[in-house]
Amino acid sequence: MAAVVSYVCISLADATERRALMAEQFQQHGLDVQFFNGIRVRDPSFDVSATEVASRMRRYGRPLTNGEIGCYLSHREIWKQLLNSDDKAWCVLEDDIRLHHGFAATVEELVTHDDHWDVVRLMGLNRRKRIPCVTMPSGIQLMWMDRQPVGTQCYVISRAGAATLLKHTASIVHAIDTAIDRHWEHKLRLYVTEPEYVSTLDLESTLGIRTGVTSLSMKIKEKFFRRVDKFAAARYNAKHRPRRATAIGRVQEQASSPYQLPTETEPT
Rank of each mutant, 00 (worst) to 15 (best):
G61A: 12
T16Y: 10
L166A: 00
A245R: 07
R189Q: 10
I180E: 02
L21E: 08
R58F: 01
V198A: 11
Y259P: 08
F224A: 15
V173D: 03
D43L: 11
R98F: 05
E194G: 07
G61E: 11
L188W: 03
A247L: 04
M145R: 11
G102C: 08
L201S: 11
G139T: 02
E204Q: 01
A162R: 07
H116K: 09
E185F: 03
S215N: 13
D115S: 10
A160C: 13
M1I: 03
L188D: 02
L122E: 06
D96M: 00
I248T: 09
H75W: 02
V173H: 12
H29K: 15
A179W: 00
A15G: 06
G70H: 07
D95H: 03
S11R: 12
D87A: 14
E194Q: 15
L190Y: 09
L142K: 14
E94T: 01
R182H: 04
R121G: 11
I97E: 04
G212N: 10
A20I: 01
H174C: 10
N126A: 10
H100Y: 03
T178L: 14
R18Q: 02
T16G: 09
G61P: 01
A179N: 10
M123N: 13
I140T: 15
V4K: 15
K187P: 00
